[in-house]
Amino acid sequence: TEVASSGEFPPEYLIKHPLQNTWTLWYYEPDRTKTWEESQREITSFDTAEDFWSLYNHIKTASELRQGCDYSMFKQGIRPMWEDDQNKCGGRWLINLDKKQRTTDLDNFWLEILLCMIGEAFNEYSDDVCGAVVNIRPKGDKLGVWTSNADCADSVMEIGRKLKERLRITSKTTMGYQVHKDTMVKAGSQTKNTYTL
């Protein structure tokens, strides 16, 4: 390009930063005429840090979404649902936020989770991360980080510890890991935490 040939900027600034994985953003909006699965819309996929920011800067923040809506960001090829092959033996680190935290913490936490995922902050355990979901709900918003194997305690705990550190989670916010299979059968009532931090 012109800029590159002028020598004005180091050429590395013109190269996008490739991510380890390609990620897909999903958006869920409740629609009575559709099934839950049909209401999950795949928005777009990206595989560079710059393309992540183009997308992030272009869409509403999580706190601006209507109640009942979700954003999900998953590795390409993994659908944001329990039934997916990559999720069916897994679970999620769940962070429940109280109503006030929608204005104080929600957007910061969600961005931090996204940065952890695209930046591969979980090191070798990053391979076990499937994606993350933010649920905007009247009773309190939820953030979930989904991993592929609930039986891998080392991996689940390391991912949880890193999340807690990066989100600077204090005692006012509890973090528990719930196995999807437990959540599926316990729909509507409290699911037990298999791991806690």
């Binding site: 600034y13 992540f52 920011w53 992030y56 930046g119 090191n123």
Partner: peptide, 20 residues
Amino acid sequence: GRKSYDREFLLRLQFDPNSK
């Protein structure tokens, strides 16, 4: 190796005009 980036590096790219 794994293509990993720390949070400060990623945050710097958010509004970097040269990264577009």
